[in-house]
């Protein structure tokens, strides 16, 4: 096998001097920069939520095609919470985990589980009161459903389950 060649940072061009890097790093970690960035995200909230709802429409249209449903659920998981739609993101996260676990087991998703999640994501994304108790209950109930369904699927795929 060929010997590894290690190239230390000083041996290739850097984007800035060490003193500039130290200065920039201090600014990036400052509470002032973080607060300003948080304001930027908050100010963009309305546009971002409109974007999430576009994805939700695409997710609803994708029902029946598990590949696209999974891709759209991942898009929503990565985006909804930044847009201030926490419950939407959490429900999408549950659906993504369901798809990911099934992929490991090489098993097909249960259509009813997917449809329930998609419907809950759509309701949460359009809810006036995002942080309602109802959303928390839905997230918990769907998580319990996913656990139950995955346990059933794992019981049917004992060999892959043991990995």
């Amino acid at each position: 096998m060929k010997k590894a060649q290690v190239i230390p940072p000083d041996s290739y061009p850097q984007m800035m001097s060490k003193s500039d890097a130290a200065k920039i790093s201090r600014i990036l970690r400052s509470s002032e920069a973080v607060a300003k960035g948080a304001r930027v995200i908050k100010d963009a909230g309305q546009k971002l939520r409109a974007g999430v709802r576009e994805y939700v429409r695409e997710l609803e249209d994708a029902i029946g095609d598990h590949q696209i449903t999974s891709e759209k659920a991942h898009d929503i998981r990565g985006f909804a919470e930044t847009a201030g739609l926490r419950a939407t993101g959490r429900i999408a996260d549950g659906l993504c985990r369901y798809f990911e676990e099934l992929e490991k087991l090489d098993a097909a998703p249960d259509g009813a589980v997917v449809t329930l999640h998609v419907s809950a994501i759509a309701r949460a994304a359009h809810a006036e009161e995002e942080s309602s108790r109802m959303n928390d209950v839905v997230v918990k109930e769907l998580a319990a459903l996913v656990s139950h369904k995955l346990a059933e699927t794992k019981a049917l795929h004992p060999r892959k389950n043991s990995n």
Partner: peptide, 27 residues
């Protein structure tokens, strides 16, 4: 990891500028 926050994005940028990584060429 998404969802991103200002803090998580800026922390990654800080990491990159303050600790540039060594590179490896191997196989």
């Amino acid at each position: 990891a998404k969802p991103i926050t200002a803090q998580s994005l800026f922390a990654r940028l800080a990491e990159i500028v303050e600790r540039p990584r060594a590179f490896v060429r191997c196989g």
